[in-house]
């Protein structure tokens, strides 16, 4: 209960949670909220400025920008959730085993992580896209893979600390097997950093997936993806600045929401994590 109370008292975190919630509602109920069909084009109405019929104007094919941004919430949130899930599912077990067993396995894993971390930021995702080819699913996979080293590092760090604790020793004395100790005693105690990291990674995932989209390496047209929309907007920036303004605003707001929520969760769950994220 203490955690929830601390989170609610954290005004910025609450604001972040609200933003995330609104985007989630947009994503789930997109067909009911969007005023128009996001794919229906009409060249006669292309690049119109905002009006009462099209609150955010129309894009280069005359499609309603607001509807495309609302449907884009679906694409961006799905991409973010799946790529974070990939990082989580692969990174957490590797990090836990590496921290728990140590030795040669740990050494190999850590050198592997060093190598992956030598590709700064979005570059690793671009390398993966270079291999798999551009596209929505490949971009998701690329972002997910580039999250793995961070999860490995963070979980390994927590496990290293926990495995020396008395309750682990007690479990071992009772004859509990190593895997059971990791699953039942160690991982539940790593939940705080994992939750905080995942929330912050959701923000990064939205940034990176839309970045790939902007570069033409992510979701392909006509998918209403925020970054992809921005990439196309640059050509028309003089004639129709609204096409460049609004999708980016959506990205910035969503990222801000997850960042604030992540910061708040960190302070509420475990203030000691402050230096680590």
């Amino acid at each position: 209960m203490g955690t929830l109370r601390r989170l609610i008292r954290h005004r910025l975190a609450l604001f972040g949670a609200l933003v995330v919630l609104i985007f989630a509602v947009f994503a789930i109920f997109a067909p009911y909220i969007a005023p128009h069909d996001p794919y229906r084009f009409s060249l006669a109405k292309k690049l119109q400025p905002p009006s009462s019929l099209h609150p955010l104007g129309t894009d280069e094919l005359g499609r309603d920008l607001l509807s495309r941004i609302i449907y884009g919430t679906r694409v961006s949130l799905m991409m973010a959730l799946i790529s974070v899930a990939i990082g989580l599912v692969v990174g957490v077990p590797i990090g836990a085993l590496s921290g728990f067993y140590g030795g040669v396995f740990d050494l190999l894993v850590q050198r592997g992580v060093d190598i992956l971390l030598a590709f700064p930021g979005i570059l690793l995702a671009i390398v993966v896209v270079a291999i798999l080819g551009p596209g929505l699913w490949n971009a998701m996979l690329a972002v997910g893979i580039s999250f793995i080293p961070t999860y490995v590092r963070v979980v390994r760090g927590s496990v290293l600390e926990l495995r020396e604790k008395e309750f682990v020793e007690a479990a071992r004395a009772l004859g509990t097997g190593s895997l059971a100790i990791i699953g039942r005693h160690i991982l539940p105690n790593c939940l705080a950093p994992i939750i905080v990291l995942s929330t912050l990674q959701l923000a990064s995932a939205i940034l990176w997936a839309s970045g790939l989209g902007f570069l033409g390496l992510g979701a392909q047209p006509p998918t209403p993806e925020w970054g992809t929309m921005l990439g196309r907007s640059q050509v028309y920036i003089r004639a129709a600045p609204h096409v460049a303004i609004f999708p980016g605003l959506a990205i910035a707001l969503a990222v801000l929401g997850f960042n604030l929520l992540g910061d708040g969760l960190r302070d509420a769950l475990d203030p000691r994590l402050k230096g680590r994220f």
């Binding site: 839309s210 970045g211 902007f214 970054g227 920036i237 460049a244 980016g248 990205i251 910035a252």
Partner: peptide, 9 residues
Amino acid sequence: SMPVFWLGL
């Protein structure tokens, strides 16, 4: 929170 490419635009 701003995507760098959007800030640039």
